[in-house]
Computed example of a mutant assay.
Amino acid sequence: MRKEDAVDGEPTRRAVAKYGGAVALGGLLAGCTGGGASEGDEAATDDAGDESYTASISPVGEVTFESPPETVFTRLTHHADMAFALGRGDGITAMHAPDYYDGLWNQFVERLPGVSLDWSGRYSSWEPDKETLYELDSDVHLADPAWITQLDAWDRADIDEVAERVSPWFGNSLSDRHQDPTPEWADGYEYYGLWEQFELVAEAFDEPERYEALASVHEGLLSTIESRLPPEGERPTVVMIAAADIEEIYAYTLSNPGFLTSHTRPLGPRDAFEGSIESGTVVDFETILEADPDVILYLGGMEPGTDMAGRRTAFEEDPVGSEVTAVENDRVHPQGARYQGPIINLFQLEMTAKQLYPETFGEWPRYEEGPYPEIPEGERLFDRERVADVINGVF
């Protein structure tokens, strides 16, 4: 997108496109989630020129773009990964914990030939400052305004101001676990699956071919999994945990609605907690032993700064933790990230399939450190070369 200055107080072509998004926000809040374009929308399209196009996502509504965005503000990593998948990884201007997620994502990117990623040093946007968004001057804010306005420093007027004066918002985050939006966003808020949202984001970037190519890889992977899953009664019991400090362990659900479980839900594991634990509940070794899972999935276990061997040792040396079946059978496995986009989702579907069903999908190597293990070509569940080509624009 061109970065032109306004002249004599009139909005630039880029600003006109952004304002179309702000109008759509108001229409959605009034209950207009579909239907024909308004006069303001038509004017925005005319002013933006013949190359303009529109895309739509809840809760933003319809947004008019004069040209595909190149620089991208994100807050959560499912959006950052979507931009990366569409060839805009280098254009990301902001994200949550950029150095942490740069390290984690590169553990997977290592296995994509000819692909590189560097998110280090980006603006950390967990609690974004409006003035910084002006300074970043990103072509699109790939973030959910309904999530942003949950922050004390933001309200609806701020959202509309940024959409008009900097660039549109285009993202959805409350689909993570089907969270309820605040009342001002509740009317017509829609929830999307991970790949459903990725398709909408691809439309915003005018990249339908890239989306279709990656979706084909994903569909093939799901088909492989679904055709080879053992009967439900033969599946392992599983818990997913995370802990920066082993003294405070958080447990997470595996199959509830939302894109956070898009890598575990298709594999149909049995919840060792039997639904008694909500995501984010703090548990101890006694609680885990009572559930006695066959497999423990350890979120963040593949981040370079995580001592995965030490986490296993903490279980093995504890008189209670050592009695857990998963610990006794050396089935404590690392995971990557819950806020995954399409690329990490492919890897996490493959790794989780191997971690849960080694007899069916091949053994998962015992991981302690380093990048995603090099899986023998005949045991891979998706084509790395194909994914790398799509990211690099060869499709």
Rank of each mutant, 00 (worst) to 15 (best):
K3Y: 06
V7E: 11
G9F: 04
V16N: 02
G21C: 00
L29C: 06
A44T: 12
A44N: 01
A48F: 01
G49Q: 02
D50E: 13
D50F: 09
S56L: 08
V60W: 02
F65A: 11
T71I: 08
R75P: 02
T77C: 15
A80V: 10
M82H: 06
M95A: 11
D102V: 07
F108K: 07
W119H: 14
W119Y: 10
S120H: 08
Y123E: 08
S124R: 01
S124L: 01
W126K: 05
V140F: 09
W147N: 12
D152A: 15
D160C: 13
D160T: 14
V162N: 00
R165V: 15
V166I: 08
G171F: 08
D180V: 03
D180F: 06
P181F: 00
P183H: 02
E184G: 09
D187H: 04
Q197I: 12
V201L: 07
V201P: 02
F205Y: 06
D206R: 01
D206G: 04
E207C: 04
P208F: 02
R210L: 05
L214W: 03
V217Y: 01
H218I: 04
E219T: 15
E219I: 00
G220M: 04
L221A: 01
I225T: 09
L229F: 00
P230L: 02
P231T: 04
P236W: 09
V238G: 07
T253R: 13
P257K: 03
F259M: 12
F259C: 07
L260Y: 11
T261A: 13
S262H: 01
G268K: 11
F273H: 12
G275H: 03
S276F: 07
G280M: 14
Y298Q: 08
G301P: 02
E303M: 04
M308A: 11
M308C: 02
G310A: 01
E323M: 15
E323N: 10
T325L: 08
V327K: 08
N329C: 03
G336R: 04
I343S: 08
N345L: 05
M351N: 11
K354V: 04
Y357L: 04
T360P: 10
Y367G: 13
E369S: 15
G378D: 15
G378L: 05
G378Q: 10
R384N: 08
R384P: 11
V387H: 06
A388E: 11
F395V: 14
